[in-house]
Design a binder for these strands. Sequence first.
RNA 1: GGUCCGUUCAUCUAAGGGUUAGGAUUCAAGAUUUUCAUUCUUGCCAUAGGGGUUCGAAUCCCCUACGGACUACCA
Length: 513
Amino acid sequence: MTTRKIRVRFAPSPTGPLHIGGLRTALYNYLFARKHGGDFLLRIEDTDSARFVPGAEEYIIEALNWCGITPNEGLTSDGQVLTDPTNPEGCYRQSARKAIYCKYAEQLIASGHAYYAFDTAEELDALRKAAEAKGETFIYNHSIRENLQTSLKMTEVELCERLKTNSHWVVRFKMPANREVCMHDLIRGDIKVNTATLDDKVLWKAVDELPTYHLANIVDDRLMNISHVIRGEEWLPSLPLHYLLYEAFGWSDTQPEFAHLSLLLKPDGKGKLSKRDGDRLGFPVFPLAWQDPVTGECSRGYREDGYFPEAMINLLALLGWNPGTEQELFSLDELVQHFSLDRVVKSGARFNPDKAKWFNQQYLREKDNEALACLYQTELEKRSIVYDEKYVAKVCGFIKERVNFVHEFWEQSAYFFEAPKTYDEKAMQKYWKAETSAIMQELYQLLDKVDDFSPEKTEAVVHQWIVDKAYGMGAVMNAFRLCVVGASKGPGMFEIITMLGKKETLQRIKAML
RNA sequence: GGUCCGUUCAUCUAAGGGUUAGGAUUCAAGAUUUUCAUUCUUGCCAUAGGGGUUCGAAUCCCCUACGGACUACCA
């Protein structure tokens, strides 16, 4: 192992909102960088002009920012570019780096590792169909490139003429006919592929006159001194090409190490997690809500659904990685401390919405009452309910173990702010008997005489009365709860009535008489 | 079809040749509580199948099955 500085990048394509699988990739990159005191850069791979979606880049940056996994180089939260002083290019959006890639594409052609191809999409389509009809697979490689319109069989002069008159050309990589490529992946170990099964990938596109992922990615990783490429498994089949590209450029010595992460799978059924699963099963697949600028279609987000970013990070971290201990709750800093690539799981992980909720619940409970009150206040304001912070904080303390999300607070605590409007039917049937009214009447009179409405005092008085009359704890308290809460739920009754005060408590009993 | 990757409870995962295969989520039961929730206890539930190698295999090798990714002038 060399002492090379650890530098990793998250390199999304701005073709839509960032998926939680992508977010996990970003997280692992971030953790790895911080663990080793390295750099984490954000590079935007916008070389597909056809699929570019306005707003996607901003979305990606905001999502990373929300999770607290911000890059220390490249595009940052406010769209500002943080530049590494040793990187004179200083640009992290690939569309702006066209001239750089152009130079390297030419270098590859000059060295005989790539060539110009003039066939059109239609011609290739026809060839593909013809092969299919014969039951064969069409591969654009050595066996076919000699028969096609390429620079390989043209003289310098012919080529110049052709390039002048025909602007429609691509640059393709000249894949060796039969070579074993031996690769190494930090998660999967050694992998071997024969180039005979590979094709002459397009490196430079004619349609938008931009490089493809393969070229831009290799050039940038080299120029930006990337030491480790941590990316999704969907790139594994391209790894031989990437190895060969490094070799063709003569860059094998500084070639980064690779780690391919398995994909996130659907909670049920077959295949990888998709946007549709979220809609179908009722959970978000995106960190932030997103409205498609073209169709206007809306997708929900974890943030808007009430998840805490800490919970999001925690659950994503454990989906495909484990610390080797039984600890499950990790702050971002703790994750940094414990993270290691060799504890990343090889197999794909099904996403589990239940566990996601559980994580949120854990984090909600750990928050102090004041912080929760602050969040709850905005909910209360929507209902035009005004109470002071201290009261709301106490309410939060009473209910935080009964909910998973802040938006469930109201359902669990409305009775702290207004008298019940309805009474739970099943509870009424169970606890409201023929004699209950009379007992509540007595309770009303009993409490009316108590001036100190502290939990200790009211409890002492009511207990004594129940014992004296031999009414039975359950019979009285459950009915009392129905009067005050309207349902069979909530913390201790004496805590509740202290919060409400004497006047409100008596009114609520009276309403049931 | 081809290439590559993968396969331990329903789900996320631990066990890097020797354990009654462990934990968490979900689900179920019980205890506690004036109710609900919490908490606690318990239960259900797994090494895909078949061959090897070995005194001994979830672990190493091979085959099969299944799953996934890729197979674009998309990333």
